[in-house]
């Protein structure tokens, strides 16, 4: 649950922010687009190892920076209260590049004429975003949300690489529990039942998403 609450809004908003920043027509923008996309194509295990080090209490960069400001950072992955949130944040970092590309495609699809008209009418940047960009991106958001709601349940690899479900049960999420029961404890029947419920859950969420579509997704310019 905590994972979903951090991942879905986190990945979408970071993706959208990156897309807005990288939508400019600047020299070398392709480099930055590739840079922000690269975590997505990096192996989760490699990311897990590097981030475990960055978040390490004694030798990690994060706690070192905090210490410069006189703050004693926690053991991000070793504390049950912060472990799952930390992993979810790393997962947002890894996956934001995907939503960035999706949003970039959406942004490029919005006719420039609308912005020109708005500018003539004296609309501020903020108004232009909320009145033009955001509504016209709703089909893109719908797609991104559907994908994110499925992806939020497919984070097994990053948990495996970073915390292995620990400390205690703090980061043992449903996909990780299915893995443990199927391939570590070899309780195939139990794991299959869990996986089946899991599929129903993904199906239900996607169905609800489609049901809600007509209330907030705007296809017409």
């Amino acid at each position: 649950m905590i994972f979903a609450v951090i991942y879905v809004p986190g990945a979408l908003s970071v993706g959208l922010t990156l897309a807005l920043l990288l939508n400019a027509k600047l020299k070398g923008i392709g480099f930055f687009r590739a840079l922000f996309f690269s975590p997505l194509v990096t192996s989760s295990v490699a990311i897990g190892i590097v981030w475990s080090w960055i978040l390490s209490p004694r030798f990690g960069v994060v706690n070192y920076m905090l210490k410069l400001f006189g703050i004693e950072g926690p053991s991000w992955l070793g504390d049950p209260s912060t472990a799952l949130a930390s992993v979810a944040t790393v997962f947002v970092w890894k996956e934001a590049g995907f939503y960035m590309v999706v949003y970039l495609a959406g942004l490029q699809d919005i006719p420039v004429t609308l912005y020109e008209a708005a500018e003539i009418d004296g609309a501020s940047r903020w108004q232009r975003f909320w009145r033009i960009t955001f509504p016209l991106l709703t089909p893109t958001t719908f797609f991104a949300l559907t994908i994110a709601m499925i992806r939020m349940l497919q984070h097994f690899d990053i948990i495996y690489a970073m915390t292995r479900g620990g400390p205690g049960m703090a980061s043992t999420t449903l996909p990780y529990a299915i893995y443990l029961n199927a391939f570590v404890f070899y309780r195939m029947g139990y794991a299959s039942a869990m996986a089946f419920m899991f599929m129903l859950l993904v199906g239900c969420l996607t169905f609800l998403n489609f049901l809600s579509k007509r209330y907030w997704v705007k296809y017409q310019y």
Binding site: R164, G165, G166, G168, F185
Partner: peptide, 23 residues
């Protein structure tokens, strides 16, 4: 491995319990 808490299940069982005391 399930009751001892070993490998991918290191957070569980006796391993998990001892770690929670230490932490």
């Amino acid at each position: 491995s399930e009751w001892r808490g070993y490998g991918p299940a290191a957070g569980l069982g006796l391993n998990g319990a001892i770690d929670s005391i230490l932490n």
